[in-house]
Amino acid sequence: MMFRRIFPHPLLTLILWAIWLLLNNSIDPGHIVLGGALAVFIPWLTSSYWPEQINIRRPWKLVHYILYVLWDILIANVIVAKLILGPQKKLNPGFLHYELQLTSPVGISLLANTISLTPGTVSCDLTEDRRYLLIHALHIDDVAEIKAEIYRKFEKPLLEIFVVC
């Protein structure tokens, strides 16, 4: 209980500390102490703006997911570069609705960000009831394939990471 009061968001504290050290580009003892103090103080000061706790069930899975997405971004860019430099008459753009199974807000925003960064798709809008994501695709060959790929690559691992609060 005491721990929760001093560190309302332990993850945020760690991230802030790391950012402070990176910004100063040094690991002097002075910066470690000052950054540590700020990292404890800022989450405490702003905790009323962060009402909900973020539940991450398997942190290692999240790290694995991020590395996987980074790799996918590399491949995606080669594909997009080809599409952009190729003849544009061949491109078949379109809007598609993707049905979400994720319910946690953090999970949904992470999925939308991932979709925007990977091949030929940008997430444009979320319906009011949070059930469909409107996606614009640069080139559609087969809609079912795009949806299946998003589910297999991104939504399934995210479903395992974020539990419903």
């Binding site: 971004i73 590399l74 995606a76 860019n77 997009v80 570069a81 599409l83 952009i84 430099l85 544009q88 491109l91 753009p93 925007s116 960064l117 030929g120 940008v122 444009c124 614009h136 640069l138």
Partner: peptide, 28 residues
């Protein structure tokens, strides 16, 4: 890749398609 992003921005026909170039290629 930065150049590809801007080429996409320049030559693709409509706004939604132009969006793809800068968000992906330029970032990478």
């Amino acid at each position: 890749f930065t150049l590809v992003g801007s080429i996409g921005l320049f030559k693709l026909p409509d706004f939604y398609m132009r969006l793809h170039g800068p968000t992906k290629a330029s970032t990478l």
